[in-house]
Design a protein around this nucleic acid. Structure first.
Lengths: 229, 229
DNA sequence: CGAGCGATTGAAAAGACTCAACCACCGTGG
DNA sequence: CCACGGTGGTTGAGTCTTTTCAATCGCTCG
């Protein structure tokens, strides 16, 4: 059961403390963080921020998962990333003076802390390690997106699905992938019906197994092979 | 005619001085830059750096154009970006300690200056404005890639071609788009034959006109409409 | 129990790709 | 000056993939 009181999560106990950005923090710095952050409970399918609005701060995921997506021409969601416990969401928008280009929305009920833009930028200004970590993170992310673009442009839907399942396996460590077929299709970049047919193929090939909507990976290696397609 | 002496380009006269990164530089800072940079002449189809190698510095394009691409499974190029005069290429790799994920190669003969990693990072460390500019640039670029991914995943090839032509129109300001059909196909993310057929459609619809391989945009607005597809 | 959403299936059509052949241009070497 | 070879551009035909549209099913919630 999740904490709905908004008050009980401390940074000391939060996974995000070990995330790529804050992992360098000493205890004192974590305490500072604890003071400026505010924690909230989010229901399922609740937005953290919306495309077109102005960024006000960053979000630390204490518990739960969040999808980050942009909308194409006819409003179709394109899921860019699924963030899990311990991740910090929205810090990319802190450095450009522009509105969000993406929307972030919870996939399940979540505990999420918020750090205001001013507090966050203050941390960045005063902490060299944090700043370097951010620059490194931004660069790495940029490089990852290159792979992403190449995949989208060159791979078959089948190959992209295999790739997506590999990514999601990592994100859903210790539990089964649990997304609506539509969300999964919007992550892979295909129609829902196509996605379902391909999932069935994977089932027939004994690469995955489904339990209701949940997906269990049976043959990771085969996925890797297929994702090369 | 391009300067092949390697010595005659000074930062003072270079377009890159006004690029997003260096535009804040005062004269003195430009002089500093001038001292640490070395300038070279590049033939057509000559690589600046190659996927998998370790970054050694950044490149300022004084004259000429450069394609940035990654390779998919079967080695097929996916062109991520076409850089033009005044752009600085490769600075994203300065902040992650990883090998290049992309290759940069000249599309035409070019004059390109080089600033070593040490010199560049030294500039970044000592110049707050530059550093902020870089963080902003990285963030903006990251946001742009979101659009890119969404386009690739959701648009038809026809729509992507229209979008690509709009981008290239901007890059080839004052001249006509001049790419091999293969490069253009690799930018759009399609097969060369498909690209050629779609170009013919655009010609029939009087949206573009070709002069040999060069492409002239006749109806920009229509491209915008189509790119929504 | 009925409404509604998400999951699934079928059939047909559209979009893209592949393969193969041919053309056009350009620079080289005789 | 011209034939030759090579690269890049173009076209056609057939095939495969993916989408679209329509319909059905199953489950949960009020």
């Amino acid at each position: 059961m999740l904490d709905k009181s908004h008050k009980h999560v401390t940074c000391e106990n939060c996974l995000a403390k070990n995330s790529s950005l804050f992992k360098s923090f000493c205890n004192e710095e974590v305490d500072d963080l604890n003071i400026v952050k505010s924690c909230s409970y989010f229901k399922k399918s609740q937005p953290l921020f919306i495309e077109g609005s102005m960024p006000r701060g960053v979000f630390c995921l204490n518990k739960g998962k969040v999808k980050i997506f942009s909308r194409g021409e006819e409003g179709k969601e394109q899921i860019i990333h699924v963030a899990k416990e311990g991740e910090i969401v929205g810090f990319r928008a802190m450095f450009s003076e522009e509105p969000y280009k993406v929307t972030a929305s919870t996939l399940e009920e979540s505990n999420i802390c918020f750090i205001s833009k001013a507090d966050f930028l203050n941390l960045v200004d005063t902490n060299v390690t944090l700043r370097n970590g951010i620059m490194k993170e931004l660069s790495t992310e940029l490089a990852n997106r290159v792979t992403y673009i190449t995949n989208m442009a060159q791979k078959s839907v089948r190959g992209r699905l295999a790739f997506a399942l590999i990514l999601l396996e990592e994100i859903y460590t210790g539990e089964m992938i649990n997304l609506t077929r539509e969300d999964l299709a919007n992550f892979v970049g295909t129609a829902t019906e196509t996605l379902i047919r391909l999932l069935k193929d994977f089932k027939d090939e004994e690469i995955i197994q489904t339990h209701g909507r949940k997906i269990e990976i049976l043959n990771h290696d085969k996925l890797i092979t297929i994702s090369g397609t």
